[in-house]
């Protein structure tokens, strides 16, 4: 985390990797490059095929799968698997899970951004007794692996009456201190003179936070939102523990139940349609916000990109 603190906000906005492609190349390195490209392209194909195969299978009718066996593309492209999911006539409430996941992941990401940004302000811009001790405690506790608190966390959530409730997915993850470190290091790059000037003009902490700090830490908050959303959407172990009521599950936990359907070949199309639907939101987020994902990975690895 020390690296994170030292890399100031410069890293986030403009951290797209630069290619060093324009340099003199020897003949042997051209051949090497050609071999490398062939292998990379082959590997990229392997990476895409499972998604593509899931997609094409999701457009095959149950009868086609059962009677024609294996084929890469459907003989007839049909939407009936998706329609069955939308109409809720499938064995499992996949669209309901999808909606649950949207509510939980959005709720979690929004709460995370709000809580973490104001806490980051508190720890960097305000002076109060015990501040540094408190921050040290956050740091120390966050060093303990989450596997140790898994079982008691269930007990806590159960005591609050949150078993089978969206709150079990929205709130507990916000306890992490990692994002506060991130915001804190980002804020320390903003000149204090700006708050001082506003304070002289009679602005209080709330106004300074809303008017001055918030607009400037936007990039890091976007990063935190994206990772909180995708992290929550893809969380697997925790929701399989806190949800036993099928209709309240998020989709990631729900899909585990679908694994049983592999025995029934007529269900394969619906099975793949469900998987495809579960893949859409996070993939779409990446496509619109690729540079934020890239720059934040570099930031946490201590690289300026």
């Amino acid at each position: 985390m020390t690296d994170v603190m030292q890399v100031k906000q410069a890293g986030v906005e403009d951290a797209t990797p630069q290619s060093t492609g324009k340099r003199h190349r020897s003949r042997s390195s051209v051949i090497l490059l050609a071999i490398a490209m062939t292998l990379v392209t082959a590997l990229a194909a392997i990476w895409i095929i499972p998604m593509l195969f899931a997609l094409t299978t999701s457009f095959k009718s149950p009868t086609e799968i059962a009677f024609s066996g294996f084929s890469l593309l459907p003989a007839n492209w049909v939407a009936e698997n998706y329609l069955a999911l939308f109409d809720g006539v499938s064995t499992y409430p996949v669209m309901r899970w999808f909606g649950n996941s949207l509510v939980m992941s959005t709720g979690h990401a929004v709460l995370m951004v709000v809580v973490v940004s104001i806490a980051g302000y508190g720890y960097t811009r305000m002076r109060f007794p015990g501040r540094d001790v408190l921050f040290f405690v956050l740091l120390a506790v966050s060093l303990f692996p989450s596997v140790v608190n898994l079982i008691p966390l269930y007990k806590v959530v159960q005591t609050l009456g949150w078993v089978n409730s969206p709150w079990a997915m929205i709130v507990p993850g916000v306890a992490t201190a990692a994002n506060i470190f991130l915001v804190r290091s980002f804020m320390s790059g903003i000149p204090r003179e700006m708050d001082e000037a506003a304070r002289i003009d009679g602005a209080g902490d709330f106004t300074i936070f809303m008017r001055i700090i918030l607009p400037m830490i936007r990039p890091i908050l976007i990063v935190i939102f994206l990772f909180a959303f995708t992290g929550s959407w893809n969380d697997f172990l925790w929701p399989t523990i806190v949800f036993n009521d099928i209709s309240n599950m998020p989709i990631t936990a729900g899909l585990q139940l679908l694994q049983n359907l592999f025995g029934d070949y007529t269900a394969l199309g619906q099975l793949m349609a469900s998987a495809v639907i579960a893949m859409i939101p996070t993939t779409a987020l990446f496509l619109v916000a690729q540079r934020y994902f890239v720059s934040s990975l570099n930031l946490t690895a201590g690289l300026k990109g």
Binding site: P50, M51, I251, M272, T283
Partner: peptide, 20 residues
């Protein structure tokens, strides 16, 4: 992007695709 996107797919959805 091609190599990164599977990392944003949940383990259960990715596993269903690979199970097929």
């Amino acid at each position: 992007g091609v190599f990164y996107i599977p990392g944003l797919i949940s383990v259960s959805a990715g596993a269903l695709a690979w199970s097929l």
